[in-house]
Nucleic acid binder design. Structure first.
Lengths: 203, 203, 203, 203
DNA sequence: TTATAATCGAGACGGTACGTCGCGTCTTACC
DNA sequence: GGTAAGACGCGACGTACCGTCTCGATTATAA
């Protein structure tokens, strides 16, 4: 047994919680750019040092907050590929909706686009943030990719279907709409998207 | 011809050019975040006033610069849907590659991701930038969408194929990889992507 | 004739004045340590950058302020060495008194001691501040030294009197009391000091 | 004797020593401003708690350290006023020299000036430090003042010489040079200073 | 030819946030 | 109770960059 006894005063978990709460609130009603670390610390009743000891950068903090927003409840898959994919994409869309109205006062366009883009930018700015973001998505999508692989092996999808590519098409379409074309992403779109993608993939 | 209606000293076109050049250079070797308007103005030998008279915001300037990078040579389409799609996606990828090495020194991941994300963020920040970006993409993609529509009408694609959705799948997959998963985007991938997408769409 | 025309927006002299006023006030009623650049800028209605453009450091600013406090009205010398010295030392003491009550609330001891010590410390921290302080004292004392030299040449002081050493004894005693022993410095002391110093120097 | 009245673990004297050593070293090669309590504690291999239990303030610690540097070997006085004064001033100067090169890398000026000024400032900041410093100087100078008084009583100095004022002139000149004019303080200067001061004082 | 007016280079300005530093206190577990 | 470790609150620092402004100096059209 190595020396288990942690030395020194332990980090306050309460502080973590208060910071994340304050950050989330600040993020949602001020948006990424007007979000201020100083303000979050104040709102959380915490010294800035306490915050920076945990997240070395505004970017790091925000990514953590957004990741929480995106975390979806784990799901039981039914085995019906179409239904499961539709359901999963629906959850992604729901996660995006959770960051609606971040900052901008009811202007046209989807406010979550800004946040998603900023997170992607943050990921590019800091290697470690990038790694964390990729890991998060990887973890999130692992189950669906397994599902697709399984379906392929059991003949529900053509043998030459590549799960990763297939999933790129699905998730990619959502993000493309959100970030680039700005066109709406609703249930109907998800259905059409899944239909279009599975048209040739289903056995 | 009578009076032009313009009085006063005309704007220097040379200034426009010098600013854009300096901005491009600065953008490529410093990246978006360390890009500074002051520095660009200095490098261009131009007063900040002169710059801000043309682009009201750092974001506006950068979007202009990036748009230039992305402009591709217009193309004659052959009518072969698979080939034309593959070719067009290739051009998109080439455009992205043109922003490689922006700022970050040979870290893992694609430097262009940062720029793309920042532009998306800028689009979300300013309504007019957003409109411009969407218009740019719309213009760029119009021909391909027309091509797809034409192919559908001529029976090369199934009647129930929706060109817009199909294209979302293709372009989306590219951006998803670039911004989210960080996985490589090469010729081989484009081929597999087009194959996967067209598998069920071709008549 | 070189190009006299200054380029760019000239510095606001009003800003200088407002900053120095605010700094003086802040210094006197908060003292050196609780003096805050942020607060001064706010009180002066000036951006912090505007302040830092003029004084690169809190120390630089404070030294300027203190120097102003010490500036004495130029004096006509009578030629009576004892009287002139006494008068000049009195002015030095008056300058020190002007920084009384800086910060500390009526505790024992002379508050100006703190300020003088801090200025000396600042002079040691920054070479340029040191140079400025030395220059200030040199300028201030130049006249008296000339006076002493003149008196020596005209036989009012012994031929082997060294004005600089003599003045060190006088001014030094004042600062020594202020900074080290903390004993009071009043008119009577100045008289005794001058008497003691001139006892052997007068012809 | 019964119980000491002390319970629990006794304070480690080794800790005192290690702290003072580390503090001295840190002070000499980093100077007052870049001197940090955290660093000293780390260098001494001691918890900050341990340090603060002994010295309630950075200032208190530093004053202790500097006091050690200044402590001079007690001296037998010969009765020759000029020689004894010269010798004693020489010891003061030696004490000052012992704080040379504190922090600043071979810039012009005397590094010890910074330390002396900082100690004076600390004395002004904390009443107890001030008292301690004054007591220290009082103790140090007591013998010399007695010597002067004795000399006056025995007719070696004029009857109206005030020992305290005389000593202010001597010590003051040294500190004035050190802190204000920055001019060098060497053996020759001490000789000239003593000569100038005693010129009129000797019977 | 001389107003008039917009542009240009230069650089100061107000504003806002950043991330860092150091002090002195507090909270652990261990001795 | 002392000690090592280290988190914490507090407060200020000096920096960076944005987008606006104020200068004096140009450079065009219009009267």
């Amino acid at each position: 047994m190595g020396p288990t006894g942690r030395r020194g005063r332990p980090r306050s978990e309460a502080a973590d919680a208060r910071i994340l709460d304050a950050a989330l609130e600040s993020l949602l009603d001020r948006g990424y750019d007007r979000f201020s670390v100083d303000e979050v610390a104040m709102q959380a009743g915490v010294a800035k040092t306490t915050l920076y000891r945990r997240w070395p950068t505004k970017d790091h903090l925000i990514v953590t907050v957004v990741a929480r927003l995106q975390d979806s409840v784990p799901v039981e898959y039914t085995g019906d590929v179409r239904a499961d994919l539709t359901h999963y994409l629906g959850e992604i869309v729901a996660g995006l909706h959770r960051m609606r109205q971040a900052g901008r006062p009811a202007t046209s366009g989807d406010a979550s686009a800004g946040l998603v883009a900023e997170v992607a930018a943050a990921a590019a700015r800091h290697a470690d943030v990038g790694a964390a973001v990729q890991a998060m998505f990887h973890r999130r999508n692992a189950l669906v990719l397994t599902l697709l692989e399984h379906a392929r092996e059991h003949g529900e999808l053509h043998a030459d279907v590549e799960p990763e590519v297939l999933f790129d098409q699905l998730a990619g379409a959502l993000y493309y709409r959100l970030l680039v074309t700005g066109r709406p992403i609703d249930e109907a779109y998800v259905d059409r998207l899944v239909a279009s993608t599975l048209r040739g993939a289903s056995a």
